[in-house]
Design a protein around this nucleic acid. Sequence first.
DNA 1: CATGAATGAGGATTCATTCAT
DNA 2: GATGAATGAATCCTCATTCAT
Lengths: 216, 216, 216, 216
Amino acid sequence: MVVFEEVNMYIPTDWSVNTQINRMDKRTQIIEAAIKVFAQKGLERGKIADIAKEAGIGKGTVYEYFRSKEEIFSAIEQAVMGEMSTAFEELFVSDISPTEKLIALMEESLEMMLQMGDALLIVTEIWAQAARGFWHGHSTTALATMYDDFREKIVAILKDGIVCGEFRSMSKDGVATLLMAFMDGLAWQYMLMKDENRFEKIKQEAIRSFMKGIEK
Amino acid sequence: MVVFEEVNMYIPTDWSVNTQINRMDKRTQIIEAAIKVFAQKGLERGKIADIAKEAGIGKGTVYEYFRSKEEIFSAIEQAVMGEMSTAFEELFVSDISPTEKLIALMEESLEMMLQMGDALLIVTEIWAQAARGFWHGHSTTALATMYDDFREKIVAILKDGIVCGEFRSMSKDGVATLLMAFMDGLAWQYMLMKDENRFEKIKQEAIRSFMKGIEK
Amino acid sequence: MVVFEEVNMYIPTDWSVNTQINRMDKRTQIIEAAIKVFAQKGLERGKIADIAKEAGIGKGTVYEYFRSKEEIFSAIEQAVMGEMSTAFEELFVSDISPTEKLIALMEESLEMMLQMGDALLIVTEIWAQAARGFWHGHSTTALATMYDDFREKIVAILKDGIVCGEFRSMSKDGVATLLMAFMDGLAWQYMLMKDENRFEKIKQEAIRSFMKGIEK
Amino acid sequence: MVVFEEVNMYIPTDWSVNTQINRMDKRTQIIEAAIKVFAQKGLERGKIADIAKEAGIGKGTVYEYFRSKEEIFSAIEQAVMGEMSTAFEELFVSDISPTEKLIALMEESLEMMLQMGDALLIVTEIWAQAARGFWHGHSTTALATMYDDFREKIVAILKDGIVCGEFRSMSKDGVATLLMAFMDGLAWQYMLMKDENRFEKIKQEAIRSFMKGIEK
DNA sequence: CATGAATGAGGATTCATTCAT
DNA sequence: GATGAATGAATCCTCATTCAT
């Protein structure tokens, strides 16, 4: 019987690892609950109590895993940034032409943002705080750094593209920024439109226009 | 007749006009203070007391002009949207070529956003609330409506451009959305870089790329 | 023409009297407005602004006639007590039999209370404050004094009645208190019933029972 | 079987029962503190902070047990009405003569009111609000209903008394109302005199007079 | 570790009162 | 005298955080 087997499943004696895993599991659980709550109510109006309830745990337990509400914000930011970074990591190193790379990059980004859905609103809010210099120094840097990293990688692709004659000569910094702006902006447009079919079309046209704008 | 003239020269103590002006003055004064405070601290952390102090008035006075904090949010939203609308109104009807119109539109938008500076952060936050459906129905509509209006006007310009052979054939809805996404996105990029010189270059490149992307 | 005559009406040169009269008129006007407002909203929830609007004057003007809100309470109390006192004054000295006097007293009291309607609720509230010793010393005394005066007069009537053989021997203080209790209590019953016809019948039976209770 | 017994002796950590009891305990504790405070300062001037201090708990804790100040009012009203209802319940069904029943009723009521002391002032105030239609519908009904129930029961006693020849023929509704008026009114008189000895005498005379008023 | 009852700092809002016009 | 805009003390209520169990 499956139940029996489950009960008798091997339990590793190295509790420290297990515990660590459980800790991370619950952290993730809480972060996911937090994202859900914050997306619905906003950063300030989303209560710790809501998060606890959403995660199916006690209010106090949240504080076993996070020192404060701000730390949850921070964790969400990290999580989102981490997810984004790793998602593109392989793309940047893949062995395809600059044009294909850029298109893949845009499609993937937009796909990701589309899947993030409401959560995007939190990111926006957290970043607004960051931009406001709320978390003086620390987080602002994190965000800016990620953006800079990202931009550098795009610049590299653009450079390759120019070298191999796929792209016209251009201000690489400008176009890289433009690309990022274009993705952020489209995400916003989607937020205010919520029409996946229409957005799909727009996305295609947008990518086409952008690529035409930099082609040789 | 002197007497008659005198009578007609007499300005009645009809303070209503003056008062109305004063009322609007103070409303504006408060809104400006609110924008300053909210931009600095965020929508939720910006206290009414802060606004009052910033405006150099008493806490209670704020409530003489606004029923609640939310009404202040609303007023800011209205003010910003109004400003934007009127700013572009004349542009849309001006008698220049589609290409010039689009370039002017982008330059003006970005210029305006640049000038809005911190206030942009509030708008973002207010709109995030709207997008979140916080102000169920009301504000969401206002924002969506403005965006739709805007998009329609851009679509019209694109149409003209295609007709007179300046632009390539395209999905006008898609490109219009792209344009707006560019502008929103660039505003964000600016928020996170705060480097006017660099932004100026980026702006130029962005406009060039965009126009190239839709040229025939 | 009437209008003309009005305009040319004689205006007494003794302004002090006129002014005094006007002052008292406006005081009365404000008190009446206050009674209306307080009856509707309660003592604490009835705002000075409401009173001013009800009286058709400016908020500040109220303070030309009353030093504070509490003074308005006080004035209302005085007014009601005064009205009651004078109403009974003549009754107590009229030349009718003790039995008739008592009946007249009860009927008149109840009639008066019935006519006071909602205003009775204010009196209740003001007296509750008094009973609570809110206006330390001052008003509590006024109320207690009036009650004592009233009781004394009833005791006198009862005494007369016993002497001339109309009433049985009794604890006059007890019965006097009972009489007053009975009137207060009936007023409350009316408040909770608001049915004048039914109340009329109840009143008759109540008076009959009471009189039977003290007859020889 | 010992083991079996042991197993059955085990008391599960089902705190729900205990907790429920504790919750009600603290609710009661808060209500009692509230009565004390409100009696002293009045419904509006009695602050939540006062209640918390009086109950020896934190301000926020009050809100763990009551959603708002109004809910506390409501709870007090319910508590008082409940206490009254149950107190008389047995009396109405006891197996004594109508005359004795009525006397017992009056004595018990007055005794109860005397013991309620200051709390009576709150009840008055809450009922004044109810009478004023402040709590539109809901509470007004509760009070009126209780009064009607009460009156009906008195009417039944009077009916019995008439049938068995103890009471004279009368308007039962009128006399029942009179009885209740007596009790309310006497309570008020007590509030304003605070002299237990004197009140005791008055009470006796009041009951005597009332009974004489309805005897055959 | 988990929990949720308890807490009080903090902030929106109200309204009696003042005072310049 | 009359007015109502301005004021800030006062108060209800929320919610992040703590801590005893």
